[in-house]
């Protein structure tokens, strides 16, 4: 079946790209923004996995903080977040904790892969899991500190 391939490009928002984030002048890591790729949103519990790769290297899940609906989540919390709804037009902020962030002006290949189940399917015990991915070359923004 056709699987919203065009929508996958919004898994990484080109508009904001990669930005460093921090507090009081100290850079704590880098971030990008991400939209859910379908015609309706999802409960976070239905996202089976979200993988982030920078320049070909997998970012450990434990380094990632996911911001949505004014809250902060770990990827490992997703299975429990069955009341946390990701509206299709809302961009989540994905933060990767890394002291010093990434050099401003440097270019990187960012890849995001997401497996998400379609929770109204469930035929004979099987359900539909969609596989989305998006890759972009992005330049780290020059500004010092990004805010949510």
């Amino acid at each position: 079946m056709a699987q919203f391939q065009s929508y996958n490009k919004l898994l990484i928002s080109a508009e904001e790209g990669i930005e460093n984030y921090g507090l009081n002048g100290k850079i704590l890591g880098w971030q990008f923004r991400c939209q859910y790729p379908s015609y309706r949103g999802t409960y976070l519990s239905c996202i089976h996995s979200m993988e982030v790769y920078l320049d070909g290297e997998r970012v450990p899940d434990g380094d990632i903080l996911f911001y949505l609906n004014g809250k902060e989540f770990l990827l490992s919390e997703f299975p429990d977040l069955y009341k946390e709804y990701w509206f299709i037009l809302d961009k989540a902020v994905v933060r990767v904790q890394k002291d010093g962030g990434l050099p401003a002006g440097s270019s990187h290949r960012l890849l995001v892969k997401m497996k998400h189940l379609i929770p109204y399917t469930g035929y004979f015990g099987n359900y539909l899991v969609l596989d989305g991915s998006n890759e972009k070359m992005l330049t780290v923004a020059e500004k010092e500190e990004a805010v949510l």
């Binding site: 519990s45 239905c46 299975p79 069955y82 189940l117 929770p119 109204y120 399917t121 469930g122 359900y127």
Partner: peptide, 10 residues
């Protein structure tokens, strides 16, 4: 409206 029988993971 939808019904998402798989909304809960447990």
């Amino acid at each position: 409206v939808y019904l998402d029988p798989m909304q809960f993971r447990d």
